[in-house]
Design a protein around this nucleic acid. Sequence first.
DNA 1: TTTATTTCGGACAAATTTGTCCTTTATAGT
DNA 2: ACTATAAAGGACAAATTTGTCCGAAATAAA
Lengths: 144, 144
Amino acid sequence: MFSKACEYGIRASIYIAEQSIVGIRVNQKQISKAIDSPEAFTAKILQLLTKNNIINSEKGPSGGFIMVPQSIEKIKLSHVVFAIDGDEVYKGCGLGLKKCNEKKPCPVHDKFKLVRDELKNMLETTTIKELTHGLKDGFTFLKR
Amino acid sequence: MFSKACEYGIRASIYIAEQSIVGIRVNQKQISKAIDSPEAFTAKILQLLTKNNIINSEKGPSGGFIMVPQSIEKIKLSHVVFAIDGDEVYKGCGLGLKKCNEKKPCPVHDKFKLVRDELKNMLETTTIKELTHGLKDGFTFLKR
DNA sequence: TTTATTTCGGACAAATTTGTCCTTTATAGT
DNA sequence: ACTATAAAGGACAAATTTGTCCGAAATAAA
């Protein structure tokens, strides 16, 4: 469904949001430990998230990553996915045709559209914030 | 969503079924031309589909690929996808966790489950045969 | 101002996926 | 039997994704 990079990106975003809510800034090492991801690779993804204003970074001692309050409220899963994987997941043709559309659809166009639209809608309505709730309560997990 | 191999595999299956219905056996060259895919790579995928009894192959002059009547009736999209990509698409965790399940779910588990179940259901109920209909009538396409 | 800490960014490496080429095997027709 | 045709299969190559390493830049604290 998503690339590894995107999976790590989503997990990192949720973790950073969870920590930011209680006022804690976290660094690369803490993040990759918390979500069980390769550190250097995760660092690249964090750069991408930073450039896309999904998280904020600060260098130096006591630096690290935070998600500002406004972002915690507004950032949706779709923003994270788009920053890393683009919109191919729910825009592209299910059979890989470049010019597949309503006028010249592939054989699975309509059937895929239903699934893709549901995915798109889910990504666009799910906030990172709400995904931190179960985490805090120990009902959901970001590794294993 | 699916790998390139799987996309080609689905397109090839639909094309072969369409031709088989009117009693025509097709070869690698015709298939890759009809679905606009790399010939040698497509040949590999056809081998895979053959091994999984989705299509039948015959060597020699006038040989090629066909889908037998029984398969045309019974083969679902899910069979083709499973033969090439496995069931990771609708079984695996959306965030890539190895041990994500109802008891220890990732934060997006439930939301993803809805989308994945719909995808799974669509793949398991859609026959290759029904996908050939629009193709025959010129309403749907396998390339571009 | 020096040092320690942390992100940034580029180059590189490994792994996987995608794709090619060529030889072998089967088979139909002559 | 010979030839032409077509799939099977193995080895290899290119491209992409995943992942590592290391020096540069920023910054806080001593």
